[in-house]
Design a protein around this nucleic acid. Structure first.
Length: 960
DNA sequence: GGGTTAGGGT
């Protein structure tokens, strides 16, 4: 076509380095190919391999070479625009070019500049001038009268009798004195000591009774939404008041706020964190209680770090940390060795037994003898020595212990614990123990802690299939966050006499769900944990040994109503090897959201701030997260927050999903995309009841219709739910389709929150997600999928092959991502059951490695959308005259000159538009030049299914 | 050949 160009040339007008890099690689590849073919023809028996290789090395060489070839080829695709589209779009673009200008919206500019130029400290100093709580004599008098009335209330007095029996009451004066004379105080106490409900009241009442209530405003954070509500309700009840008087709560999208002054507000840690963004000095707040700090969730750790800075600017602010009784020295040390007041718990004593005791008592001895693992031969060969090592490890670890206790236990017990398989979860042993307790021990519910869904399912089947089981004598519950039982009240109810209640649970019953009548706990000693590997940049889900802290918490669940028994299904020897505490969450997770929020707080050197936290995250994780934020254009090269970043930080969702809903506002497809965003940032509305897994999968496929998208499937669910609700039919709709009403309602509320915020930021004219003005393009399926991919980018996978397998229901697939190599659609993804994809590319949000690297949620994507909304520094043409565009740094699209020009121009102009909209937020005026650009993009996307060149058609076309 | 611990967002 354009034969006058012998030199590679830029098509997108950006820096040249990426192009040069790409060309260099291209040249190297070409050389390699040439080299191989030369050897292939002339080298005879060596077929291109270097001389001197022997035995296994030869095999390894060919394997390696085949893998490299395959990877390189499979990352290449084709894209071509048809001529009439090119002409049309070029015309639109030339009109756009002449019209486009941009300016800051003035009030936003000031705000933005202040965020970039002010430091955290400066900001606090400025805010200090505005903030000064003054005592209000009239208010004090009024509240003192109310206080006296409350004290006269009989109900209050009656409740006071119970309150005074709580262990924390013995330390009331000590606590009040400590808080009065210290800025930071740590109160530690175990379950039932009353610290959460009582201590804030002690403080409030001391202000009320001394006539200074107008100076008292207490916030108490909780890690979970439910606990914020239930604690607030309890405290209001103790005071013989309704919520909203001196006690209230605030969680996301739901609050009953108490009086402005002289009050206690229980809120989630996230609420406090969000408040700090605009109110770093916590204006008007006199006391901050941070509860459950020992749980070490990300939010609590970050808030602790911030409070440490804030207290020097707010000498009148009191901080009270509350924790369980382990690890308290860490928190005390963190706050300059602050006073620690320890309170006893009220739990009943719990007797502990270990695996060896359980074997003795149940006479169980059937551990499998063989180390039976099906493995490919080569892996077995490679791991031969390693495996016997681990067997030796176990022997050397258990032998000394077994010898030390051999006189106390039967021979079969000693032999049993010497078998490494005794440490695996054994459903037969669990079943035997449960029936043993049921038939031999006094009444009381049995709570079994298992690592996850699969173990719960197996044990449930084993119990209900046993000859000892009968529906009249047993009530068996499975408890898991995805099972409906977790939302129902029945699991809390006490069974009739002579009926044994058995609850099989994940660690949801460790903290989130409390069942009072439990007397027996069976602790498998295993739990699942996500981890983040900075090297592979992969999130993993692994089964791990519990920690001593977990064991203590699980054990405590047996002693709430009477003395209890805890059976640990591991030996005392194993207990010695267990960690004291779980790894704090901030060391196990990616940090994009945290970093962006810190930037909002005007903390520019986030790495330095993070180094001052109780636990310091790995610097490489910080750098990876910063790199992604830069790639999203939320941070600039100098790591300053950009106007776009500022909008994303204000939204209560991950930055990638925030970008998705911002694009939805611009492209007018708000209803479906806010559904997608809510679903990704909250949770799946589908239950997975035991034994109904396949049924639920089928229903999901049904809801996905022809979208080839888990994301749009969820959007369809919400739309249909709304329709059924309008007809008053939502209950049966949810029941029939295994949907959670409460989750769906929360998703609807979240959608409203998103549109409220988008309207506040001026990206929308209507805050109703379903308003037609917000949804001109909501039925354009290809556009919806494109917006999803634009948000989720660079999370892209490519399907190489789909095969229908006779012996299986689901097709087999061969999928890759550039970063990970082979990956799989998770079986719960609707795309794991589909064939006949029109495009090979898929966007995903969650990727997690367990038994394989799974993509949990996927949407099939038109590659044109990726090219327009994605990034990549290389484009040009190679020696053979083939034009190409690089997507990211791996996917390569062969194309022709005009197609490349048009696509890259659209990409460039769209980036500009987004930046322009970020500094001057507003809906796209349908009459404006911006609408022209969006129209041009829509035009290209809509024409995507056509492919004009016979050589290229296979790549944009069907995959089977 | 193939399956998810638990939380959180003015």
């Amino acid at each position: 076509m354009e034969s006058n160009n012998d030199e590679p040339r830029r098509l997108d007008g950006r820096t040249v380095s990426g192009l040069q890099q790409a060309l260099r690689e291209q040249a190297i590849r070409a050389m390699n190919r040439g080299g191989r073919s030369h050897h292939g023809r002339g080298g005879g028996r060596h077929r291109g391999r270097p001389p001197g290789l022997r035995g296994r090395e030869i095999g390894m060489f060919y394997r390696q070479r085949a893998m490299e070839r395959e990877q390189q080829e499979e990352l290449e695709s084709f894209v071509l625009l048809q001529p009439e589209i090119i002409v049309k779009v070029q015309k639109m673009l030339s009109e756009y070019d002449s019209a486009s200008t941009s300016t800051f919206r003035s009030e936003f500019e000031n705000y933005f500049k202040s965020i970039r130029s002010t430091s955290f400290e400066q900001n606090m100093k400025e805010k200090l001038l505005e903030s000064c709580v003054e005592q209000d004599d009239r208010l004090d008098e009024k509240m003192m009268i109310e206080y006296d009335e409350m004290m006269d209330n009989l109900k209050f007095q009656e409740n006071m009798i119970t309150r005074e029996k709580l262990p924390v009451n013995t330390k009331k004066e000590e606590i009040l004195n400590a808080i009065a004379s210290n800025q930071v105080v740590l109160i530690s106490g175990d379950t039932g000591c009353g610290k959460t409900t009582q201590v804030p009241q002690y403080v409030l009442d001391s202000y009320l009774s001394s006539g200074k209530a107008s100076l008292c405003k207490i916030f108490c954070t909780q890690p979970r939404r439910i606990s914020a509500i239930t604690v607030a309700e309890r405290v209001a009840w103790e005071r013989a008041q309704h919520l909203g008087e001196s006690v209230g709560y605030q969680i996301r999208l739901q609050s009953v706020l108490p009086h402005e002054r002289g009050s206690i507000t229980y809120c989630t840690t996230g609420i406090l964190l969000k408040r700090l963004e605009s109110d770093p000095l916590l204006n008007g707040i006199s006391h901050i209680f941070l509860d459950e700090v020992h749980e070490r969730d990300v939010n609590t750790d970050v808030v602790m770090g911030l409070l440490k800075e804030i207290i020097s600017h707010r000498p009148d602010l009191k901080v009270i940390l509350m924790s369980a009784t382990f690890n308290t020295s860490t928190f005390s040390a963190y706050f300059n060795n602050c006073t620690n007041i320890e309170v006893q718990g009220t739990l009943f004593p719990v007797t502990e037994f270990y695996l060896e005791d359980v074997l003795e008592e149940t006479k169980f001895a059937n551990f499998p003898e063989e180390v039976q693992r099906k493995r490919p031969k080569w892996e077995k060969y490679r791991n031969k020595y390693k495996q016997s090592d681990s067997l030796d490890d176990y022997t050397s670890f258990i032998e000394p212990y077994a010898r030390s206790v051999q006189d106390k236990y039967s021979k079969f017990v000693i032999e049993g614990i010497k078998n490494p398989n005794s440490e695996k979860i054994n459903v037969d042993l669990l079943t035997a123990l449960i029936f043993h307790i049921s038939f031999n021990k006094p009444a009381g519910a049995i709570l079994v802690f298992l690592p996850g869904y699969e173990a719960i399912s197996k044990l449930h089947t084993s119990i209900t299939n046993s000859k000892f089981y009968s529906a009249e004598k047993f009530k068996v519950y499975a408890l898991h966050s995805m099972m409906p039982t977790a939302d129902q009240k029945s699991v809390f109810s006490r069974p009739p006499e002579n009926v044994r209640k058995v609850i099989i649970s994940t660690n949801i019953a460790e903290t989130s769900i409390t069942i009072d009548d439990v007397v027996y706990v069976i602790n498998s000693g295993k739990s699942k944990m996500t981890n983040y590997n900075p090297e592979t940049k992969l999130q993993t889900l692994e089964e791990v040994w519990t920690t001593l802290a977990n064991n203590k918490q699980r054990r405590g669940r047996a002693g709430r109503v009477q003395p209890g028994i805890c059976y640990h299904l591991f030996t005392r020897a194993r207990e010695f090897t267990m960690d004291a505490l779980p790894t704090p969450e901030i060391l196990r997770t990616r940090l994009e959201s945290v970093i962006l929020n810190l930037k909002m707080l005007r903390i520019h050197d986030v790495a330095q701030f993070l180094r001052k936290l109780v636990s310091v995250p790995d610097d490489s994780v910080v750098q990876t997260s910063i790199a992604l934020l830069k790639r999203l254009n939320a941070l600039d090269e100098r790591e300053f927050i950009t106007p776009l970043g500022l909008h994303l930080a204000r939204l209560p969702i991950d930055p990638q999903i925030g970008k998705m809903i911002l694009l939805a506002a611009l492209f007018k497809c708000v209803d479906p995309i806010t559904s997608v965003a809510a679903n990704l940032s909250f949770k799946d509305p589908f239950y997975r009841p035991l034994g109904k897994e396949k049924l639920v999968d089928d229903i999901r496929v049904k809801f996905s219709k022809d979208t080839k998208s888990d994301h749009l499937m969820a959007a369809n669910v919400i739309t249909e739910y709304r329709e059924e609700k309008r007809k008053g039919n939502e209950r049966s709709f949810c029941y029939d389709n295994f949907l959670s009403i409460s989750t769906l309602n929360q998703l609807e509320k979240m959608k409203g929150q998103f549109t409220d915020l988008l309207m506040e930021a001026r990206f929308l004219e209507s805050s109703d997600p379903t308003d037609p003005k917000n949804n001109y393009n909501s039925s354009n399926l290809d556009l919806l999928r494109s917006i999803i991919s634009a948000g989720l980018y660079p999370n892209v996978a490519k399907v190489r092959r789909v095969k229908i397998c006779k012996r299986r229901v689901d097709p087999r697939m061969d999928i890759i991502t550039p970063e990970d190599g082979r990956v799989s659609f998770h079986p719960s993804s609707i795309n794991s059951k589909q064939t006949g994809f029109e495009y090979k590319f898929f966007a995903y949000f969650m990727k997690q490695k367990s038994t394989a690297i799974y993509l949990f949620d996927t949407t099939m994507i038109n590659p044109r959308a990726l090219l327009i909304f994605g990034d990549g520094e290389g484009a040009g043409f190679d020696q053979l005259g083939n034009h190409f565009i690089l997507l990211g740094d791996s996917f390569r699209f062969r194309t022709n000159r005009v197609s490349a020009e048009v696509i890259l121009k659209l990409r460039e102009k769209f980036d500009e538009l987004l930046q322009k909209k970020a500094i001057n937020p507003g809906p796209v005026d349908p009459e404006s030049e911006d609408a022209l650009l969006l129209g041009a993009i829509t035009e290209v996307l809509n024409a995507g299914r056509f492919s004009g060149h016979p050589d290229y058609s296979s790549d944009e076309g069907n995959v089977m």
